[in-house]
Design a protein around this nucleic acid. Structure first.
Lengths: 245, 245
DNA sequence: CGCGCTTTTGAAAACCCTCAAGCTCCGTGG
DNA sequence: CCACGGAGCTTGAGGGTTTTCAAAAGCGCG
């Protein structure tokens, strides 16, 4: 756990409401109730852990700012990144029902995380079916994304894998009202490798080749997207699996 | 859709109850209510489709007998199998909340499927929170399995991928009170390839090599498992992600 | 200014893929 | 009863994408 300041800011959970409304029609009363949920906010340092595989949790995390990834490791120590969360995303609401953590959670860069207690959230879900349904739907959309990642890693070559990953994150950011340009993804090539099932060396070469064609633009460690359309082509990206309205 | 006889057998949904109880403590009253859910039963011919990507659904399917797989295809027509369901598994309960189908569903071999109407199931979930929680938990366990498949395809070599796949199915069958020996997996090498992100040719060679070592035993198209322990070793299989009690 | 982390580059090797053909098994029909 | 055809399995040779190993260069930070 990173050191963190506790606060109680009213609009911290607005991003979560926005995310739920991407998939569900949430009544205003429900939205207000959600935002009033008691919560604490923590600043997570880059690379700090939110949870470790096997741990028991009693709180749920919501990403407010920054990026967080979910990963799992094989017995041989090979790491596979399974999800990359953007602001507004519920990070581990699955722990509400399966309190033992499957996966590790780590801050990609310095991030702001809101915590709500399982008890409080459970109470809210029980009293407001609209919220319960919206949360369930969000969990199922996440599952659809997990499946697309399997497709990505299993059936696309290196260029397409990376392009697809970037398209997805760009679109999910945009859906949250954010922009790749404003908050460019600070993934290292190591992390891209672990997300796509490749090696860092090959990611480097592929990124380089994509840059040469103009499909992406690079500034230091960051990747910008000058040509989303071209990238979409390369990645064979079809956003239906994101279930955006 | 395959031609199918309609019936109304009382114990058809017992497998589903068993599956839910792998993860949740279900009250007897809840279990009885579940089994009394109105349903029809259909016999699906080998390779027949239950649903196609993009279709709207109004019923949920439960696998009673046989095997069914879930798949998705890339824009280039490459197929990736995303899940293999065993008897007792709820197949598409996600459509209760996201009625537009993400994925295709196809019978691996002749299978028996029970259908319940969304309306009936929704009513049951609303009136019995214990069932609602058990179903949510089952969906989340499935999500955990999806993630492990990403790890499998992304970070293991061919031998380990296939071994891991076989270990998982064998264990899930066993948890349902079935046995690999009684109902050996009728996957073709093509299907194993699509499940593991490999090509059929390489699956053939790998299967052959696993057989030569005695890790598996083969009888015609079928794969038997004489030595689960050896396979577990090869696949780096750690069953925790299955959340079996 | 130097240390650590990340990126970059090169060369060789490995794993897996593609292409292609032959084989076995089995159900169907002549 | 045997020929035919299809589906799935097997095998070989060659090629390609990706990996491994190794080392150097760039960059940010204390």
């Amino acid at each position: 756990m990173a050191a963190g300041a506790e606060q109680n800011n009213d609009s911290v959970l607005a991003g979560l409401v926005h995310r739920l409304r991407l998939h569900s029609a949430l009544a205003d009363a429900d939205a207000e109730a959600l935002k009033r949920l008691p919560h604490t906010v923590q600043l997570m340092r880059q690379n700090s852990q939110l949870a470790r595989t096997g741990e028991l949790t009693t709180q749920c995390a919501i990403l407010v700012k920054g990026f967080i990834h979910r990963y799992r490791a094989t017995d041989l120590g090979q790491r596979q990144i399974l999800a990359i969360y953007v602001p507004g995303d519920p990070i581990d609401f699955d722990h509400l029902f399966l309190p033992v953590a499957d996966d590790g959670l780590q801050a990609v860069k310095e991030s702001l995380v809101a915590y709500v207690r399982h008890d409080d959230l459970r109470e809210l879900l029980a009293s407001r079916p609209g919220i319960a349904e919206a949360v369930t739907r969000a969990l199922l959309v996440d599952a659809s994304i997990f499946r697309e990642w399997t497709v990505n890693v299993g059936r696309r070559d290196a260029r397409a894998r990376i392009a697809h990953l970037l398209c997805e994150i760009a679109l999910r950011l945009k859906a949250q009202g954010l922009d790749f340009r404003d908050s460019p993804l600070p993934l290292t090539q190591d992390q891209i490798a672990d997300a796509t099932g490749l090696t860092p060396v090959h990611v480097n070469r592929t990124l380089r080749s994509l840059g040469a064609e103009g499909a992406i633009q690079r500034k230091g460690p960051l990747v910008l997207l000058p040509d989303p359309e071209a990238l979409r082509e390369v990645g064979g990206f079809d956003p239906r699996y994101l279930h955006l309205r």
